[in-house]
Amino acid sequence: MVAPQTGAATIGAINIRGVKKTFTHQDGSIIEALSNVDLSVAAGEFITLIGPSGCGKSTLLRAIAGLHPVDAGELTLDGEPITGPAAERGLVFQDPLLFPWLNIHDNVAFGLKARHLYREHKAEVGQFLKLVGLETFGKSYPHQLSGGMQQRAALARALVNQPSVLLLDEPLGALDAFTRMNMQDEIIRIWQERKTTMIMVTHDVDEAVYLADRVVVMCPRPARIEEIISVKRERPRARSHPDFLQLRGKLLKILDFGGQEREPEYRI
């Protein structure tokens, strides 16, 4: 097993100050994808980003990944400015995006090989496969695995680089409801073991509340952070706890899906 990190996380703090990003459409119209975003993420914190499409949550995540430069403001990881993609900021997409021509083991080993670290870190590939419960599937090819298993492999592939931050772009969006809840618990277990800072984009309110230390609610036009809600609950959490329903209601209200509130009617 990969040695669990002990004590509180010391690396993986992200600071976002006054970040702006605009895209220019082909017809010349300008879309404001992020307008003046500030956010501080503590080392080892679990953040979920939620909001309707067009609110800039994926843009913000990709900016942290360094995949596209921002127009203004600054992003830092542990005080160092983010200028481009790097292995210290792992990214997992909604689509597992495994390379179909490589088996699961080689897919996970991919980042290490690219950075010429495979030789010294060979054993870790197996350890991370075990961490995500795929230790017996190393020789299988992606098309032989279910969607959930492929996504576990994608997690292992990002984790093997020992990132200080793991960025998750709706990683469970394509999974069925039960696999999804299972994977949420899996992600929490990995997070508790690795103490990696997690920033996850989701548009599932339950998922956002269940996983996060803090839920960041974003809104479109202009794309901005509307509110940040702390979820001060011990883990493991219960999905049907009354506090949960209350937080869920609060989130839905901010997102304008609150509906008509009534007194509870117990007529079961």
């Binding site: 990944a65 990002a158 680089n161």
Partner: peptide, 11 residues
């Protein structure tokens, strides 16, 4: 996204 992925993995 394969290209982005390769970049994120340090290629």
């Amino acid at each position: 996204r394969h290209r982005d992925n390769a970049r994120v993995l340090g290629f």
